[in-house]
Design a protein around this nucleic acid. Structure first.
Length: 917
RNA sequence: GCUCGGAUGGUGGAAUAGGUAGACACGCAGGACUUAAAAUCCUGUGGGCAGAAAUGCCCGUACGGGUUCGAUUCCCGUUCCGAGCACCA
């Protein structure tokens, strides 16, 4: 009987679907386990072999947990809103809903072939109204709440209004924008518009003027994590800074909790570090400098260096710029601002070392020394961080130093013995000098002492700043969730909850209007009760921020998730996905969850307990070498004898770096008449490891692998390739090894005639030892996500059992249970051939019995003075004294010792004996 | 520039409470079966030296030091590669 994987895999995939094998219910009699993959954006290109890596790992873990008796929730869905579908729609006129659906269907076909144990009855798609109703709902909840810094949680905006009516806002400690103080009387005297504007400053989802990343080519603003090196992540188009009024989420209010709660998560340190850096907490002080009649506040982490301030610097966008520019300097300042504005973010970054700036004409008074210092404007100060203004200490900050050198400003060293003639001294160490009452202190003492001093004298206070900015939440695009907001006389007003979802309207074109408004402005009757509805849509991360909650209760029309479902499933126990979401999705999702936690909708304050980042699978590209100006190709080993051009060749027509010459001639018309210079009768290709992409002709499609080797082989091979979290190249040539393993496993169950040949008998000690070694290894490996070494362990165990000619039923049944998470189809088939009616998924993971694996004799390698010499066989573990006697008694070792005395005996239990003589 | 992570045969990779480095697999070489090929099975395979052979010796985990009876593993320094952040005061 042959191992017919095509038939077997099809059979069991249908079986699982028909029997709903992997559908789960909230079942409180069993412990729950929630395994989640980062759901894919269904792109037009389909899946390549790199995509399923994480899904295979999570599937192995899910199937393992089921065998261990857990009620496992393992769902899948699609992150279906997004730019590529819309860009494609603009080019082709096809509706993004249509292309998205086609892509989803293609994805589903590909996923189904790999044999995942997803509960597809819980599938979600972020672009479906039934789903995005809850995205809109969460947005409105954020709109209707503010962040109370005293209680450290989100609270209803209605409660805030009540406080305003009673006592004004003087005593309110909330995360908010710039708001003037007002009394209860004043609040009541404000008109509706003014009150609305004030409340907007407090809302968690709010509309505000801010510097945004504007991408002209995409026609939309982007969040910080959607921009890399001044270019948009999607498309790679230039991005510029622009002041715009946008919807934002007050993520910054949660900065401290997002930071602190990282401690309890089982995430890798590197990912936690990335989030910590992104949140960027820094402790320092705010200090007030008088400039004429104004009090200008700055933020510093080096309060100790205030005696070395020789100038001040404002960000070009700072509101102080206008106030402090003197008439004489007005022209120069305007010219500078105009230049600065013209630059894209990209240009600013590449010119990072170029020092630019302009003097405002005003002077500030150093509050400690009383010195008069000039106030400058420069791009190196950021408007969005701190107060947008700094005190410059050129002796101890390299950026201030560069500026001072450029514009010839004084530099005062503050640390004994430091040399600031060539560069600044940035380290926080040394003894203070030139610093009044701080003289003689170490820097570590001086920082708090300086802050204490300014606090006592009312010139400043302790302050913590975060780099984490509020998330820009609107996009001027079509293919996203519409905002459930309309403008009643210019006042942003929510559409009532019971009227959600607000469905995405049809438009004639997916482009901005002639007047530059977003595509939704093209929709007919895009109004609510006659008032205009918001025309921006929500960004990609909106729909992916709470999808893990929706899987718990996907059909619920009355709540995002019922409290019963949430109370049972709680949060994700294991989350697997790429590291590229470290500062985007994984921050937003944590924020979103904490907000819902504050409101009592969810019971856990963190969404993802354990997180594994699977590495990327890279492509292994092949090259041919064309002799310049000819159509002749020279083999890899001979290419240096010619002047050649390296050309990518499709890896599918290369086998083991040998080019299939006929296939190459047929590959592209240009090569039909190609000539070859061969070595040993073959054309050898060069290779390189690169990103898997169409343009490099190194894409390997999982469907092809399933057709020629089967899904079980694909699954095993992807795991066998290397550690899960490491990036590694795909190379199809190694796949024969795991395929051979499965074929040999299959053969173990049958005799030469093809009949099932399993023996019912008591297993031998040797068989039990091989099995229990495997149980231990596989169990430990799965728990630690070392799937590559467990695949090896299966191969080793099978070799051992083959040597023993084992056909023992008990042993083989246990082996296939162990293997079933990795290779579910072949093991289901064998399980059923062995007479089991139920799916192998309902079997139990075999118990490990240590007694079977214990050795009766110990073979100790014996080393003398560290050099390995002999092996010594002992019947049991011995003490050093007993070992010394055994060594003396042994012919070999005594020969080496030749009567010399033994100084010391070191015994490393069950590993090695070292004799020092 | 700052913060992390990594470097082991021709290839992917095993092995860390420090204890026989190179498991397992690919590739390669040789052999069996076959008219032949595929498939399958067996043997060998880090480098060097000696030997007819069994075998023995030396060198080897990016490089240079250190701790230790003993280091791929721990510590210090260097080089190279990868990822993230990027004027965050």
């Amino acid at each position: 009987m042959e191992y017919n994987f095509l038939e077997i895999e099809k059979k069991w995939q249908s079986f699982w679907a028909a029997n709903k094998t992997f559908e789960v219910k909230a079942d409180s009699s069993k412990p729950k386990y929630y395994v989640l993959d980062m759901f894919p954006y269904p792109s037009g290109a389909g899946l390549h072999v790199g995509h399923p890596l994480g899904y295979i790992a999570s599937d192995i873990y899910s199937r393992y947990k089921r065998l261990k008796g857990f009620n496992v929730l393992h769902p899948m869905g699609y992150d279906a809103f997004g730019l590529p579908a819309e860009q494609y729609a603009i080019q082709t006129g096809q509706h993004p809903a249509k292309t998205t659906e086609n892509n989803i269907n293609r994805y589903r076909e590909q996923l189904d072939r790999i044999g995942f144990s997803f509960d597809w009855s819980r599938e979600v798609r972020t672009c479906e109204p039934g789903y995005y109703k809850w995205t809109q709902w969460a947005f409105l909840e954020m709109f209707n709440h503010y962040y109370n810094n005293d209680t450290c949680k989100a609270e209803p905006i209605a409660e805030l209004v009540a406080k305003f009516e009673n006592e004004g806002n003087a005593a309110i400690n909330a995360a908010c924008g710039d708001v003037e103080k007002f009394t209860a009387q004043e609040w009541k005297s404000f008109d509706e518009k003014k009150q609305s504007d004030i409340l907007m400053q407090y809302r968690i989802a709010y509309q505000g003027e801010t510097a945004v990343n504007w991408c002209a080519k995409l026609g939309t603003v982007l969040a910080n994590d959607e921009v890399k090196e001044g270019l948009s992540v999607r498309g790679g188009y230039p991005v510029e800074q622009k002041m715009m009024k946008q919807w934002q989420l007050r993520v910054s209010a949660y900065a401290e909790r997002l930071l602190v709660d990282l401690d309890e998560l089982q995430w890798t340190d590197s990912l936690k570090d990335m989030q910590k850096n992104w949140i960027g907490k820094s402790q320092g002080a705010e200090m007030v400098f008088k400039v004429g009649d104004y009090d200008m506040t700055i933020f510093t982490t080096r309060a100790d260096t205030v005696f070395g301030v020789t100038f001040m610097v404002l960000a070009p966008e700072s509101e102080w710029v206008d106030k402090l520019t003197t008439p004489e300097q007005r022209e120069a300042v305007d010219a500078y601002l105009k230049e600065a504005k013209k630059k894209t973010e990209r240009e600013r970054m590449t010119e990072t070392r170029k020092v630019t700036g302009v003097f405002t004409g005003s002077y500030a008074i150093n509050p400690l020394t009383g010195d008069k210092v000039p106030v400058w404007i420069s791009e190196y100060v950021l408007a969005g961080y701190g107060t947008g203004a700094i005190m410059a200490v050129p002796a101890h900050d390299s950026r201030d130093y560069a500026f001072a050198k450029q514009f010839n400003l004084p530099i005062i060293p503050l640390i004994e013995g430091c040399d600031v003639s060539q560069e600044s001294f940035d380290a926080k160490e040394g003894i203070m000098c030139n610093s009044g009452f701080l003289n003689g202190m170490s820097v570590k003492e001086a920082i708090p002492a300086a802050i204490d001093y300014v606090e006592k004298h009312g010139i400043g206070r302790r302050k913590i700043n975060y780099r984490l900015r509020d998330a820009i939440f609107s996009r001027q695009r079509y293919w996203g969730e519409p905002f459930p907001i309309y403008y009643k006389d210019g006042i942003a007003t929510p559409i009532p909850l019971e009227e959600l979802p607000l469905q995405l309207p049809e438009v004639d074109k997916f482009l901005p209007t002639e007047t530059g408004e977003p595509p939704l402005a093209r929709a007919e009757n895009w109004t609510y009760k006659g008032y205009p509805i918001e025309t921006s849509t929500m960004p990609g991360f909106a729909g992916s921020s709470a999808y893990y909650l929706r899987y718990m209760d996907p059909q619920n029309d009355n709540a995002l998730v019922s409290s019963e479902a949430d109370g049972y499933w709680r949060n994700v126990d294991l989350y697997i996905g790429g590291t590229e979401h470290a500062t985007g999705h994984l921050i937003y999702s944590r924020f979103w969850n904490k907000f819902l936690f504050d409101l009592g909708y969810v019971v856990e304050k963190e969404p993802f307990k354990k997180l594994i980042n699977q590495g990327m699978i890279q492509g292994r590209s092949n090259f041919v070498y064309r002799i310049k100006n000819t159509n002749t190709f020279v083999s890899y080993g001979l290419k240096d004898q010619y002047d050649t051009t390296e050309i990518h060749v499709d890896v599918n027509i290369v086998n083991n770096d040998r080019l299939d010459i006929e296939a190459f001639r047929n590959w592209m018309p240009d090569y039909a008449t190609a000539e070859f210079v061969l070595e040993n009768g073959e054309y050898i290709c060069g290779y390189a490891v690169e990103k898997m992409s169409k343009s490099m002709f190194n894409v390997v499609n999982p469907d092809n692998i399933c057709n020629s080797y089967g899904a079980d082989t694909l699954r095993l091979y992807e795991m066998f390739l290397g550690p899960l979290e490491q990036s590694k190249p795909w190379d199809t040539k190694g796949i024969d090894g795991v395929n051979r393993f499965l074929k040999r496993l299959w053969k173990m169950f049958f005799d030469a005639e093809g009949n099932l040949a399993v023996v019912d008998a008591e297993p031998s000690a040797a068989e039990l030892k091989a099995l229990h070694k495997l149980i231990k290894k596989v169990g430990d490996d799965i728990e630690s996500f070392s799937f590559n070494t467990s695949v090896s362990a299966f191969m080793i165990a099978m070799n051992e059992l083959q040597d023993l000619k084992s056909r023992n039923r008990q042993i083989l049944e246990s082996v296939i249970i162990l293997l079933s998470p990795f290779a579910p189809h072949i093991t289901e088939e064998l399980w059923s051939l062995l007479g089991h009616k139920e799916s192998i998924s309902f079997a139990s993971f075999p118990e490990y019995v240590e007694a079977y694996t214990i050795e009766n004799t110990f073979e100790y390698p014996v080393s003398f003075n560290g050099k390995m010499r002999f092996k010594l066989e002992l019947s049991k573990s011995l003490s050093p004294k007993e070992v010394e006697e055994a060594v003396r008694a042994n012919e070999n070792t005594e020969k080496y010792l030749a009567g010399k005395p033994i100084k010391k005996v070191i015994v490393v239990p069950s590993k090695i004996i070292n004799i020092v003589c």
